[in-house]
Amino acid sequence: MRLSKAWLIAVRDFKIFGHQKNLWYALIIFPVIISVLFPIVIQYAINREPGLPAARIPSILDSFSIFLIIGASFVPLGIASYSIVGEKVEKSLEPLLATPLTDGEILLGKTISAFLPTLVAMYTGAAVFMVGIDAVTYPILGYYYYPNWTIGVLLLILMPVAIIMSVEFSVIISSRVNDVRSASNFGILMFFPFLAIYLASQIGIITLDIDTLLIISGIIFVVDVILFFVSTAMFRREEILTKWK
């Protein structure tokens, strides 16, 4: 598999996405909500009577930060769904399939084209989130909570593998349905595993420390690899050309 060829597809898709305002909205809205709303909520919790005790703030922030992963799991759904279903709609897959590109190169290109914009959007949102949280918690904590190792593992390891899982799942769904909305609707199922992790942390089954995050990341990475092979196996040129309507 040639990465340069996959990159070509990704770059072309970036250009196409640039003309799709709806995809931009999906990409921007959630990071903006997280980065602005969460610091406001924490500020409110600190200021109200009785105020949030300083000792509880780190655990609350660690739990909150899983929402960055929840966001990362559904922000790429629109782009990932569009990248395959959009080709179906424009009927532009046949000439692409007639080139010397392999299935793996096409799918990797599609994965990159949904992965990178999501990662950039989520990192931007996370940066604003951390600055906002530090601004509101510094007076009560006496130190800047972010950055720390936990958020580092969460952003640099867990978030990328979570995005890839979501993208791969969307690609698989996209190859089975005929419109972007249906693909996105199915893709929302990706929300539940991370919601379960959040709930498990809230009821004390797991602690969202570095070790746990690394274990979760490892599991998701394995799922990513499996999903990539599944998506490649399900990407059947003949079926695409003869059964996709």
Partner: peptide, 27 residues
């Protein structure tokens, strides 16, 4: 080979130049 399918299958959002440039890079 070169193929012109019954549906032209061009990327509608890209310019004529970009459509051709993309395929030139593939080859």
């Amino acid at each position: 080979i070169g193929l012109v399918p019954d549906n032209v299958g061009l990327s509608e959002h890209l310019s004529a130049y970009d459509n051709l440039d993309f395929y030139g890079k593939i080859y």
